[in-house]
Amino acid sequence: MFNLSLTPNIASRGVEDARFLERCRRGEEEALTVLIDRHRARLIRVAANILRDANEAEDVAQEAFLKAFRELHSLREDRAFSGYIYRICVRLCMDKLRQKRAEPSEFDRVIEHEGAQVDNKIVVHKLLAQLSDDLRNTLILREMEQLSYEEIAEAMNVPVGTVRSRLHVARERFRELWLTATKDSQ
């Protein structure tokens, strides 16, 4: 059912990343640009979906890139750069969420301004906000980002088995929340 080995696509991406990292260590800015180009879109999207704030996502993605480049020496396996940078990004997002827990999110503000215009997107994000950080992030990385189990495990620094169990629980919880929300709205 689940593919537990690294897919050729991920493996080849890892090899290419390793080649560019080698050039980065020699101080080549072109290689840095290539690495940014390769991971920018996905990283910003991950941050945007976890934070539910597109503007803040850009800042977090930038911070993740800078942190990754700063701590390149601590990367044991160059092929794992993709997971390494996702891990940094997810951690930064979680830190941000902890900081701004009391503040209203972008979607809360939308609801305040637009009154009864409730979109499914907003409902989904409101429901996701009710899940714990680990469950929500696992669900977002899998269902919204379509990351593989291995990639999620790398990004969240947990075993693949934990990803599977978290995903199962997250889906169940989300389903329950969705049913409750839609029942209330009827």
């Binding site: 840095l32 920018r40 999207r45 597109a54 930038q62 989904v124 994000h125 269902e143």
Partner: peptide, 21 residues
């Protein structure tokens, strides 16, 4: 539903790269 609810942020790629560098 989850897939559809994905946020697709629009980014100025050049500015983003320039800022990081």
């Amino acid at each position: 539903l989850l897939k559809e609810s994905r946020i697709e942020p629009i980014v100025n790629e050049e500015k983003f790269n320039r800022d990081i560098l």
